[in-house]
Design a protein around this nucleic acid. Structure first.
Length: 471
RNA sequence: GUCCCCAUCGUCUAGCCUGGUCCAGGACGGCGGCCUUUCAAGCCGUUAACACGGGUUCGAAUCCCGUUGGGGACGCCA
């Protein structure tokens, strides 16, 4: 039989870390086997489902490169099939109508000490469709075998008595999740259901439905949950969970994928997995059984790793939106800027950070960082910058070699002043900050004219702000 | 409360099934050093774990039981 997996998110929010990993595992499992990976949006909760979140879900998946096969399926469109299934179960006596109200159910539950399984009051009443407002329940055989051999956890399952007769159809006539999922998975010929461990207890109920419908069981694989840095369940308040947010911060999809795939899965001592390697090596048997904390320190490291290995053109393109947000203009397509970006790769963990660090090369209006200016643009730096300006003004070539020679002449001129005393004030003059790539490269990145302008401007600034230079 | 699951360095994990090669390996992080005009990167070094208690065995991180801790599920939500 053709192997098929599916990712079945409900469109009630953004694509979330846990869902993204579930999607990734389904995708990787399918691609590894050359099998089919389907996407089904579980939009039957009309209250909470929105078109916008469906869109952002798809966008997140596409951005991560988790392409699904064939048309997207919306669960709401399968309503007729759900109704047919319920009717069939009713006709065959495998389901029955129940007129117990929520209030009655609640009251009886209290009395019996919180036991959740339905007590079966309407089970043998044989109610017809004219019985008034009613739900439809599955008639579960007490002897039914509700266990399965989980591909990750091994033997799992609950006793039928604990499960009880679950509701398949609400009193308003709409089908419930567990019924809809099973019917859809059967219709879509899903052979491997790979999902979060939070669905583990649903599995027994779903197995009961598969049996009642006379369908073959798929394989089940439950993935240990991802927990936040606090060790607790991922929370929107405490933890970064939205894939969209990671994207906006400038994380690369490759890094996110690599990070996510290692949360619960491993391949010996290997850490770096390209998309292709994930497909090549992924397998359910190497998934662990304990939950994993999402620690972004490792993501940062991975992101820089991918930043470093990205082709320059691609990187600059990816940088555009971040730079635009920061400075109002996209990355200049100049050799100087390209070189700068190359130097910045190893000093940035995200694209956003890279945009921040290269902004001085893009804008014409740099501002001095207060701390940097007060430390390096002191009156004592005036003669240094003045000498440097004179030296560089006389340099027609603007490359690192000639610039270095210029700096050395200034050094000689000023009695062997340490390089730091020259480079730091210059750095602040050029970038506004005390941190940047090598000073010659920095000067090259902004170019001759702008460099001289900025040094002159720093000189003015010192004159204006400092007390009279006393050197 | 009931049911279920899990348990190796701070974190992700290898090892566990098929006990000895493990005074437990890798990676991230941390710390220290080298390099150095700043910040990084790089390189070198270092830190730190088999939750606890009982078994079984010549021998247990590995098998069994219990305890503790953590997590999940208990909806006419998905």
């Amino acid at each position: 039989m053709e192997i098929r997996t599916r990712f079945a998110p409900s469109p009630t929010g953004y694509l979330h870390l846990g869902s993204a990993r579930t999607a990734l595992f389904n995708w990787a499992f399918a691609r590894h086997l050359g099998a089919t990976f389907k996407l089904r949006v579980e939009d039957t909760d009309r209250e909470r489902s929105t078109k916008e979140s469906e869109e952002s879900l798809l966008e997140g998946l596409r951005w991560l490169g988790l392409e699904w096969d064939g048309e997207l399926v919306r669960q709401s469109e399968n309503r007729a099939r759900h109704d047919v299934a319920i009717q069939k179960l009713l006709d065959e006596g495998k389901a029955y109508r129940c007129v117990c109200t929520r209030e009655e159910l609640e009251a009886r539950k209290q009395q019996s000490g919180g036991r959740r399984a339905y007590d079966g009051r309407c089970r043998e009443l044989d109610l017809a469709s004219d019985c008034g407002e009613h739900t439809v329940r599955l008639r579960l055989d007490e002897e039914a075998d509700l266990h399965w051999n989980d591909l990750v956890f091994g033997p799992l399952g609950q006793e039928a008595a604990q499960v009880g007769d679950m509701i398949l159809r609400r009193s308003d006539g709409t089908p419930l999740y567990n019924l809809a999922v099973v019917v859809d998975d059967i219709d879509m010929q899903i052979t491997h259901v790979i999902r979060g461990a939070d669905h583990q207890s649903n599995t027994s109920l779903q197995i009961a439905i598969y049996r009642a419908l006379g369908a073959t069981l798929p394989e089940f694989a439950h993935l240990p949950l991802i927990v936040g840095a606090s060790g607790k369940k991922l929370s929107k308040r405490r933890d970064p969970v939205s894939i969209q947010d990671f994207r906006e911060q400038g994380y690369l999809p490759e890094a996110l994928l690599n990070w996510l795939v290692r949360l619960g899965w491993s391949h010996g001592d290997d850490e770096i997995f390209s998309r292709d390697e994930i497909v090549e090596l992924f397998g359910l048997e190497a998934i662990g059984r304990s939950s994993a904390q999402a620690d972004t320190a490792k993501l940062d490291w991975l992101n820089q790793h991918y930043l470093k290995s990205m082709p320059a053109q691609e990187l600059i393109e990816a940088l555009d939106p971040h730079l635009e947000r920061r400075t109002g203009s996209p990355a200049p397509r100049t050799p100087g800027f390209e070189q700068l970006v190359d130097l910045l790769r190893e000093r940035s963990t995200t694209l956003d950070e890279m945009a921040d660090k290269s902004a001085w090369a893009v804008t014409d209006t740099i501002e001095y960082e207060a701390k940097a200016a007060s430390k390096h643009l002191k009156p004592a730096a005036r003669p240094v910058l003045a000498a440097l300006h004179a030296q560089l003004d006389a340099t027609s070539e603007w490359n690192t070699g000639d610039l270095e020679a210029g700096f050395e002449r200034v050094q000689a001129e000023l009695d062997g002043l340490s390089m730091g005393k020259i480079a730091q004030p210059t750095r602040v003059a050029i970038t506004g900050t005390a941190v940047s790539p090598g000073i010659y490269e920095t000067l090259v990145a902004v170019g001759r004219e702008r460099s001289l302008e900025r040094i002159a401007r720093a000189l003015e600034w010192i004159d204006r702000s400092g007390t009279a230079p006393n050197a």
